[in-house]
Design a binder for these strands. Structure first.
Lengths: 226, 226
DNA sequence: TCATTTCCGTTGGAAAAACAACATACCGAT
DNA sequence: ATCGGTATGTTGTTTTTCCAACGGAAATGA
C-alpha cells in the first residue's frame, strides 16, 4: 500500500496532506487494492459502485457501447485520477460505461461512507479531505459546464468564438495562448480539423482575430461590418 | 429568514433534514439574504464568489456575453436551486457568467467554510449536509458528462442513437419514455427540430426503432443491413 | 545538411444539417 | 362537432460541415 503514497500525494484529493497522514488515512478510510491485467474489465456497464476509486498505477479506458454495439472511448484515466465518483450517490443507478484496463493497472477503493462521515478525532486531516473532494468535483463540474457551452453552439465558427472568448476572459487579456494544437482543439470542440482551420482563417480575414501557432489575439471587428 | 424554510426543505441540499434543524443551521452556517429587483445584476462576470448560493424566491438567468457582445442565456434558476458552487473553489478564478434577476428575487448566501468545516457538536445534521452537498454536485456532474457524450457526436443521427441508447440502459428496457417533446429534445441535443424529426423517421424506416409521442422502442436492425 | 515527420492551411466534391414553409395530427375548450 | 392552437412530420433549398487529398512550413533527428 505504501508504494502508492507518492501517486496519491500528487492527487488533488490528497493535496496539502503529508505522507504520514496519507498513510494513516488509508487505514482510516478502509482502502483496498485490486489489480487488473491488460484488457481486463475493471467495471462493467450495469454494475453498482459503492467506493470512491483512484487509479494507483497503469491506465484505464472509460468506454461506452451503445444498444447496437458501437464502441466509443470516452476518457483515459491516469494514475492519481479519481473516477466513478458520480455513481456513489444513492439511487444514482448503475454504471453507464465500461471501464477497461488499457494496461496492467491497480485501482484503490475508498469507503465513501467513511470519507463523508467525519471520524471523531482520529484524523485531523479529514476536514481537509472533504474540502479537497468538494473542490475536485466542483472543478470538474466547472470545466464540464464550460465545454458544454462551447459544444452547444451550432456552427464551428460559433464554437471557436465562444471558446476563444472564454479563454480571453479567463486569462484576462485579448491576447492569450491555448493549450492545444489544431488537431487537439478540433477534438476538444468535436469538429473537423481542416474545416476548423479554414474557419479560423476566415475569421482572421474578417479582422475578428489574429493568431500564429497557439497564440491568439481577439480584435474589435472593423466598423460597418455585420 | 423563516419564510424560506419551506423552499429549502424541498432543496436537495437539505433533504432529510427537518424544519427545526434547517432553521438552526441557517444560523450555524451564517446565512444571509440579498434581494434583487427585476432586471438587476446579482453577479457579474469577473466577480469572485465566496459563498454557496441558493435561490430563495424569484427567478434568475445565467447569461454569458462574449468578447463581441453576443448574449446567450445558459440557464434559468428556480427557487431551491443551488448555483455558483463551482466558483467557491480557491483559485477557481472569477465568474465567467452574468447572473440577472428575471424577476424580483431573493438569494441566500451560505458560508462555504462553515459547511465544509464540521462544527464540533452543535449541528448533528452537519454530516448529512456535507453528504447532500456531495450528492448534489455529483449528480450534476453525472448528467453533464452524459449530455457531453451525446453532444460530442458529430451527426444528429449519432446524437439521437447515443441518447436513446443511454435511456434504454438507464430505464433497463428497450421500451421507454423520454421527458421531452420533440422541440425540447432538439434543444437538449442542440440540433434543429425538423431535421431531427426527419432523422427519427428515417431510423424508424430502417427498423432501428419505433416511437409514438415520447414512447420509444429500440429494435435490432434487420439482418444484412450495414 | 538532409531526410523524415508533424503540423497547418487549402481546395473541391460529397454528405449532412439548418432553414423555411407547409401539411397533418392531436388536444382542449366551447 | 367545431374551432383554435400546438406538436409533429414532410419537403425542397440553402448553407455548412465533413472528408480526402495535397502542398508547404516548421520541427525533429540522424
Amino acid at each position: 500500500m505504501e508504494k502508492y503514497v507518492p501517486v496519491l500525494k500528487r492527487a488533488k484529493l490528497f493535496s496539502d496532506i503529508g505522507d504520514d497522514e496519507i498513510l494513516s488515512m488509508l487505514d482510516c478510510l478502509n482502502a483496498t487494492i485490486r489489480q487488473y491485467g491488460k484488457g481486463e474489465y475493471a467495471f462493467r456497464q450495469g454494475e453498482f459502485i459503492h467506493d470512491l476509486l483512484i487509479l494507483g498505477s497503469g491506465r484505464l479506458h472509460i468506454q461506452k457501447e451503445d444498444y447496437w454495439g458501437n464502441l466509443n472511448i470516452l476518457n483515459e484515466i491516469r494514475p492519481g485520477e479519481m473516477f466513478g465518483e458520480a455513481y456513489i450517490v444513492p439511487n444514482s443507478g448503475t454504471l453507464m460505461n465500461d471501464v477497461i484496463a488499457a494496461e496492467e493497472s491497480a485501482v484503490l477503493f475508498f469507503d465513501m461512507e467513511r470519507i463523508l462521515t467525519v471520524c471523531p478525532s482520529a484524523c485531523p486531516f479529514h476536514t481537509r479531505l472533504v474540502k479537497n473532494m468538494f473542490y475536485t468535483i466542483s472543478d470538474k463540474n466547472k470545466s464540464l459546464v464550460q465545454k458544454l457551452s462551447y459544444m452547444s453552439q451550432r456552427s464551428t465558427r460559433e464554437k471557436l468564438l465562444s471558446y476563444l472568448s472564454d479563454e480571453a476572459k479567463r486569462q484576462n487579456s485579448s491576447s492569450f495562448s491555448i493549450p492545444f494544437n489544431r488537431q487537439q482543439l478540433a477534438d476538444f470542440l468535436s469538429v473537423d480539423r481542416s474545416a476548423m482551420s479554414n474557419e479560423l482563417c476566415k475569421l482572421r480575414n474578417e479582422g475578428m482575430l489574429d493568431f500564429h501557432k497557439n497564440e491568439f489575439t481577439l480584435r474589435e471587428p472593423p466598423q460597418g461590418h455585420h
